[in-house]
């Protein structure tokens, strides 16, 4: 595979932890210039320690994509530092699990829409501004399994993630002729810590232990284990590479076979 990203600039939102951090590491190893952003300065500092504090190909920006001015700042710093945007990885704002339909907090629900769906759109609109000039670019939306597998306890993240799949298709249809390819990755259960909350709910609802909830859940995953962030990162890097030059509007499930429907 041709996974050399020399002189390519990659922006990763939610890049300080989990899948975002693993993705940053892979792109840096492939010679890319990488900008990671996140809401927490501490998490970004920890990420720098992991990725290499003396790495001139790495830039961190504290940014909450819920705010347009902060997204503008992210892209201004990216351009001032590296001069371009070739790849955008929209990977931010995991949404909470738990409330049933009559337990939804409407303000929190709308804040999640603003943070994730509209956050992705804020970043996408800014990235596309630059990508259109160079007539090339890749945008990869990290979606989350609730978009494909609706669940009564995922009434915030599920609908938002489904909407991002629709957005991915629409962007791909529109910008394909201008060299901008837009795809989605739907990670299944990944060992990032985020899944603990889901298992706690499952254990509580079924009145079983956390371990039993985990065993039950994994019995529905053909590979019988959680995925690693690096395994999702590998799919992301592939979609951003020249080897994926005829893939747009598509969604890749990295889920150990969890979703078995057509």
């Amino acid at each position: 595979m041709n996974l050399d990203f020399k002189n390519k600039v990659v922006v990763i939102t939610g890049g300080s932890k989990g899948i975002g951090l693993a993705t940053a590491k892979k792109f840096l190893n492939a010679n890319a210039k990488v900008v990671i952003c996140g809401r927490s300065a501490n998490n970004l500092q920890e990420a720098v320690q992991i990725l290499g504090s003396d790495n001139s190909n790495l830039k961190t920006v504290q940014c909450d994509i819920s705010y347009t001015n902060q997204v503008d700042n992210l892209f201004n710093i990216t351009l001032n530092t590296f001069g371009n945007v070739d790849v955008l990885i929209n990977n931010a704002a995991p949404t909470s699990w738990g409330p049933l339909i009559d337990e939804i907090d409407e303000e929190e629900w709308l804040e999640a829409v603003n943070s994730k769906l509209l956050g992705y759109i804020r970043c996408t609109k800014r990235a596309i501004d630059y990508m259109l000039h160079q007539k090339s670019g890749r945008i990869i939306n990290i979606v989350g399994m609730g978009g494909r597998g609706p669940n009564k306890r995922y009434l915030t993240g599920g609908p938002i993630n489904s909407a991002i799949l629709t957005l991915t298709k629409a962007l791909a249809n529109h910008y394909g002729s201008q060299g901008i390819l837009v795809t989605a990755i739907s990670p299944g259960p990944i060992d990032t810590g985020h899944h603990e909350n889901i298992l706690n709910w499952m254990a509580k609802e079924a009145k079983i232990s956390y371990q039993e909830a985990m065993d039950n859940f994994l019995s529905g995953v053909p590979l019988k284990r959680y995925g690693k962030p690096e395994e999702v990162a590998s799919a992301i890097v592939f979609l951003a590479s020249q080897d994926a030059s005829f893939i747009t509007g598509s969604e890749i499930l990295v889920d150990g076979g969890r979703f078995r429907s057509l």
């Binding site: 769906l117 609730g146 978009g147 609706p150 599920g158 609908p159 938002i160 993630n161 489904s162 909407a163 991002i164 799949l165 629709t166 957005l167 629409a170």
Partner: peptide
């Protein structure tokens, strides 16, 4: 996209 959300 709002319709897809309602489908979910």
């Amino acid at each position: 996209s709002a319709d897809t959300a309602i489908l979910n």
